[in-house]
Write a protein that binds this DNA or RNA. Structure first.
Length: 782
RNA sequence: GGGCUCGUGGUUCAGUGGUAGAACGCUUCGUUGACAUCGAAGAGGUCGAAGGUUCAAUUCCUUCCGGGCCCACCA
């Protein structure tokens, strides 16, 4: 072995070796493997680069995958990427904007071509990056959510929902992003606290134009679309005004004053102006009272014709003009500073403009039922358990899912419209031959695409071949685990669960693990726009992939919600690996004959101790990994390797082997302990352990059967665990430390051999002859 | 408004109903052939605050203070 640990020199080569061995592919794994273990990767978006979240999440998965492969399971980690509709469309639009182009200038066909070009360029980059981190995905099964086969699954799903009557279409008030020019679902919105204003505006009463009803609003521009004023039924202030009429200033429209329980009498003036076209609550109230709907703000955020003289102004411009006009007419009572939350598009951060628009929805109430039950009954186990409640709360109050998007990048709806009767349509996978309504038109497919999560909801089974009844589907569904970040619990996890039940009548995975969110060391969110993001590949270059993996895992405690990422932990991991490297060199140097199976005849006290510690460790680590306690497992192995094996046993072995009758045995134990440690460490730091394994055992590169990646996981030998020995050895170590401390205080040269001072005599006498020798050697005593 | 979560040595974090732990940093000593990406020894914390339960609380309960997050139709 080389003197220095330089990961960059072998990591690439080792990855190629694994790929050549084909062991990432479960069909090529040796031996009979009865148990299946399968994870379908959360498909990264084709938008761009790898971030710390990917590194954490995929390291977790790779550790579990490698562990199960070593356990003898038929193990599949299925990789893929997501077309990520709105996200990808936006990045490509941004890129075009730099060239001074818009998607509208290109047209739909040209634009989607550009997106495909982007996908080809960037889609594979992220996969290459994943390989750098050593992830052992079966690349022969790579999927993309816009693959032909995958598209079939998406169509099938839509048609299925339609046939069951779960899909409906209609005008509704939806969250509209005026920048992306599409509807988005409730959970694609984020909120931001912003300073705003609350304007108090007088609406004259029809009967008595000198009297007024005053309302408070944050959005005066929407008043042009007002069709009522509502007050709380119990509000005594307005009792006499109910059922009277008021006049909307500027547009001079006559509107009723109505009562509705959703109006809070303690907010503003207790009177609420109702604009059904531009507000969720107002829409609801409008529906209850069958109010007319007047659309005054268009899809691009500009005022419509209905806004009269304000038409074509942006909403903000209109607001200023309206305020100006109201002031002139002395209808503006007052203005208050007001801190409130506004909703923004999750993808482009534009303020959401609620809009009436015709969209497609999936009815959720029934679909949610088995998804609720399965989690309640722990058929799907959620870790950490606190997310179970969060999930259930959402599922139990679920709203219908708006699945149509006015985007160009995605799965087009399998819906065909009659050209003559515009509202008539049929649902079909392929273009219909003839129109069943007018018999003569060529039916036209809906321009809308599906919410990107509609397709990713099918991920755990569409990747395995559904709707075909493939062997993979049979073997690997339900999958074993879904590991992810908490921000897509509703967006993705929940939807996979009800989809799984709907299409396969079974859970999609047995376990959901939700890992912590990685923050900067001072607790800030990592994000590109804030320039607080860190590229994990920087660490790969600096410290190697293994150190990066281990360093991340060491700080990702199981139930932790946030991880303040500390680069020093990666450094610590690198140092640990360096230690492991040198332990291996020591073992190699001590035992150049490289012969295995040397019999351990009569283990010394030190042998017994290290074997007891080792087996104790094996006993702990397996369950920790299975319970997703990866950081604890890593810490325990780290502790053992460094502070039991290297610090004590290795040092003892140096003089134990001088006894010729013990020499072979000492070598054998060194090798054995190292070998078991390499195996247990392999899931965490696969490159270096595989390299050491190759070099230490002089394995030929084509001898795939001897690779560590398929080595059997260590088994506990309970007979070797001996707590009495361990306790005695702990006392021994303590005495050695005390003597060393004494030596230091007395400033005795470390090399000098001295006689045991009297204060330690009594303690020393309690040890056996064999133990005394160890103490004498380690403490440099006569 | 409701809910979740965190607050432990300089920093990042473990941990437990009964004398507080790790890593990094710091101090002192050390270049004996595994390793200075190291070894040995050490300093450093009234475990956010106040109450309560208990023989005993950092650990359980309540309240408060201070971070972070999620949900909700206060315009």
């Amino acid at each position: 072995m080389q003197k220095k640990y330089i990961p960059q020199e072998f990591e690439k080569e080792i990855y190629q070796l694994w790929e050549k061995s084909d062991f990432f592919n479960p069909d090529k794994l040796p031996g009979t493997r009865k148990n299946k273990y399968c994870v379908t990767i959360p498909p990264p978006n084709v938008t761009g680069s790898l971030h710390m979240g990917h590194a954490l999440n995929n390291t977790i998965q790779d550790i579990l995958i490698r562990y199960h492969r070593m356990q003898g399971d038929k193990t599949l980690w299925l990789p893929g990427t997501d077309h990520a509709g709105i996200a990808t469309q936006n990045v490509v639009e941004k890129k075009l904007a730099q060239e001074g182009l818009s998607r509208h200038q290109l047209g739909r066909e040209k634009f989607t071509e550009k997106v495909w070009e982007w996908k080809k360029e960037y889609g594979d980059i992220i996969l290459k990056q994943l390989k750098k981190l050593g992830y052992s995905c079966d690349w022969s099964r790579l999927r993309f959510t816009l693959d032909q086969q995958y598209a079939q699954a998406v169509l099938k799903a839509f048609i299925h929902y339609h046939q069951k009557g779960y899909i409906y279409r209609g005008p509704r008030i939806v969250n509209w992003c005026p920048r992306c020019e599409t509807a988005i679902s409730d959970i694609e919105i984020k909120y931001q606290e912003r300073k705003g204003r609350l304007w108090y505006i007088k609406y004259p009463l029809k009967n008595n134009p000198k009297k007024f009803i005053t309302i408070a609003t944050t959005r005066p521009e929407t008043m042009l679309g007002d069709t009522a004023i509502a007050v709380n039924p119990r509000d005594k202030k307005y009792k006499e005004l109910i059922n009277q009429k008021a006049i909307v200033p500027l547009v001079e429209r006559e509107i009723p004053i109505i009562k509705h329980h959703l109006v809070k009498s303690d907010f503003g003036t207790g009177a609420l102006k109702i604009t059904p076209a531009h507000d969720q609550t107002d829409w609801q109230i409008g529906k209850d009272h069958q109010l007319p709907v007047i659309n005054v703000i268009g899809p691009q955020g500009k005022m419509t014709k209905e806004a009269g003289i304000y038409a074509d102004l942006s909403a903000l411009e209109a607001r200023e003009k309206i305020i100006e006009e109201l002031t002139k007419k002395e209808l503006l009572v007052k203005t208050e500073e007001y801190q409130h939350q506004i909703s923004l598009c999750d993808r482009c951060s534009s303020p959401i403009e609620p809009q009436i628009s015709t969209q497609w929805f999936v009815k959720m109430k029934e679909l949610a039922q088995p998804a609720i039950k399965s989690v309640q009954e722990n058929k799907i186990k959620i870790i950490p358990s606190r997310y179970k409640k969060i999930y259930l709360n959402w599922m139990e109050n679920i709203e219908d899912w708006c699945i149509s998007r006015q985007l160009w990048w995605g799965h087009q709806l399998p819906v065909w419209f009659c050209q003559n009767q515009k509202e008539k349509y049929i649902v079909a996978a392929e273009a219909p031959q003839a129109c069943p309504y007018c018999q003569k038109c060529k039916m036209q497919q809906s321009a809308d695409v599906l919410d990107t999560w509609f397709s990713s909801a099918l991920w755990p089974f569409a990747t395995l071949g559904w709707p075909q009844k493939t062997k993979d589907l049979q073997e690997y569904y339900p999958t074993s685990l879904l590991s992810t970040a908490r921000d897509i619990l509703y967006l993705w996890v929940a939807r996979m669960i009800f989809s799984g039940f709907e299409f396969l009548e079974d859970i999609p995975f047995k376990k959901v693990y939700i890992h912590g969110t990685i923050l900067t060391i001072d607790g800030k969110r990592m994000s590109k726009s804030l320039k607080t993001g860190i590229d994990p590949l920087n660490f790969v270059e600096k410290y190697g992939a293994d150190a990066t993996r281990l360093g991340i895992i060491l700080q990702a405690n199981r139930d932790q919600q946030e991880i303040r990422f500390d680069e020093r932990t990666i450094l610590a991991a690198r140092n640990f690996i360096n230690k492991l490297w040198n332990i291996s060199r020591f073992v190699e140097m001590m035992d150049p004959s490289n012969s295995e199976n040397k019999k351990i005849k009569k283990p010394t006290i030190a042998d017994q101790w290290i074997l007891s510690r080792l087996n104790n460790l094996i006993k702990e680590v397996g369950p920790q990994i299975e319970n997703n306690n990866l950081s604890s497992a890593a810490k325990d192995i780290y502790e053992f390797v460094w502070h039991d094996f290297a610090d004590w046993y290795l040092e003892i072995s140096k003089f134990q082997k001088e006894n010729s009758s013990l020499e072979a045995q000492t070598y054998a134990i060194l090798r054995l302990v190292l070998k078991e440690c390499l195996k247990m460490l392999h899931p965490f730091i696969p490159f270096v352990t595989e390299t050491i394994n190759l070099q230490l055992n002089e394995i030929k590169k084509k001898d795939y059967a001897r690779l560590l990646i398929i080595a059997p996981w260590p088994e506990v030998e309970f007979s070797q665990i001996n707590k009495t020995t361990e306790k005695k050895f702990t006392e021994l170590k303590e005495l050695v430390s005390e003597i060393r401390k004494w030596r230091k205080e007395k400033e005795i040269n470390p090399k000098e051999i001295v006689s045991l001072p009297s204060q330690f005599q009594k303690s020393f006498a309690s040890f056996s002859g064999e133990e005394k020798k160890i103490i004498q050697n380690l403490a440099k005593l006569q």
